[in-house]
């Protein structure tokens, strides 16, 4: 286990019905770096993402550790695992298990500091751009019903803070002119950027981007890669990115993990990946 890593993935496996989608995936994401997850279609990239972000539960033995917000978070436990035999002789573990069964779930992963975007945009299309960003800041807003109804000072202050933060990120992603537009009416490229901005509003330490450049034109794509680099350099965000655009990947990634048939095929720097015969075979087929 690498102590400097923000995310450690160990023995991640998952089955759907009888099909083994992932078997024993191991890799780590170093802090404040850009790690790319690449591989041919159907290699299991998005499945890895869904396991990391808590939409799928990894199979037995999977261990996902996120070292963020000054502690080490067990991402599998948060989803509410089934009871184990040793829980019944260990009351604290039992209580914890029940707690996660009742209140656990995907949302805890995000609260631990891991935010994600989706391959197909999942914006709140009928809400305005600012509102999209405010929803993402739900946890830090003043939520007391009474304070909200009576519009107390701390309620208004917390709303003001949230608006400021939203506008900071809008400016960062060059969306500030769109603040009060309906999200669903933005052009595709802006929707993609808005989704990243929304993820950033949850104050993550690790950002997982699922094909952020898909469907963008070369200019937009270049702009996006610059923004991702700025996220790493200016905000010390660690980024895990799935992308098919190899130019973009080779340009921005510090570290690349190659998946094939649900297994890690190769793990190294862009230069190493470019020269690896294994990776070339997987992509182009063996001669």
């Amino acid at each position: 286990m690498d102590n400097n890593a923000i995310l450690n993935v160990a023995h991640l496996n998952i089955k759907f019905g009888g099909i083994i989608a992932l078997k024993d995936i191991n890799f780590h994401v170093p802090r404040a770096s850009i790690t790319a997850l690449i591989g041919p279609n159907g290699a299991g990239k998005t499945t890895v993402f869904n396991c990391l972000t808590g939409f799928y539960k990894g199979g037995p033995g999977s261990k996902l550790t996120l070292s963020s917000k000054n502690k080490s978070n067990n991402l599998v436990e948060m989803l509410g695992e089934g009871f184990k035999l040793q829980d019944f002789i260990n009351p604290p573990a039992f209580v914890k298990r029940i707690y996660f069964k009742m209140f656990g779930g995907t949302h805890l992963v995000c609260r631990a500091g891991l935010a994600r975007t989706f391959q197909n945009n999942r914006l709140f299309e009928e809400m305005s751009v600012v509102e999209n960003l405010l929803v993402a800041q739900h946890m830090s807003l003043e939520k007391s019903l009474l304070k909200g109804v009576f519009q107390t000072k701390d309620y208004l202050e917390s709303q003001e803070r949230a608006l400021d933060k939203a506008h900071d990120w809008l400016k960062f992603f060059k969306l500030d002119k769109r603040a009060n537009d309906i999200a669903g009416e933005l052009p595709y490229g802006e929707q993609k950027r808005l989704e990243i901005a929304r993820a950033m509003c949850t104050s993550p330490e690790l950002l997982c981007l699922d094909e952020p450049a898909a469907g963008l034109n070369p200019a937009e794509s270049a702009e996006l890669s610059e923004l991702i680099i700025r996220l790493r350099d200016e905000h010390r965000i660690s980024v895990l990115i799935i992308e098919h655009d190899m130019h973009l990947v080779m340009k921005i990634a510090d570290h690349i993990v190659v998946l094939n048939y649900g297994e890690v095929l190769f793990d190294g720097t862009p230069a190493e990946v470019r020269n690896s015969s294994k990776v070339i075979d997987a992509y182009l087929g063996k001669e």
């Binding site: 939409f55 995907t106 949302h107 709140f124 809400m127 993402a136 909200g148 993820a199």
Partner: peptide, 28 residues
């Protein structure tokens, strides 16, 4: 008031896309 408060916004967000809400840390 509710529709402009975080709770009300979360309700409407949930109506539009539950998966996105969960990915943003909302306990659906």
């Amino acid at each position: 008031r509710l529709v402009q408060m975080p709770v009300g916004r979360a309700w409407e967000a949930l109506r539009e896309d539950e998966i996105a809400c969960r990915s943003l840390g909302l306990n659906h």
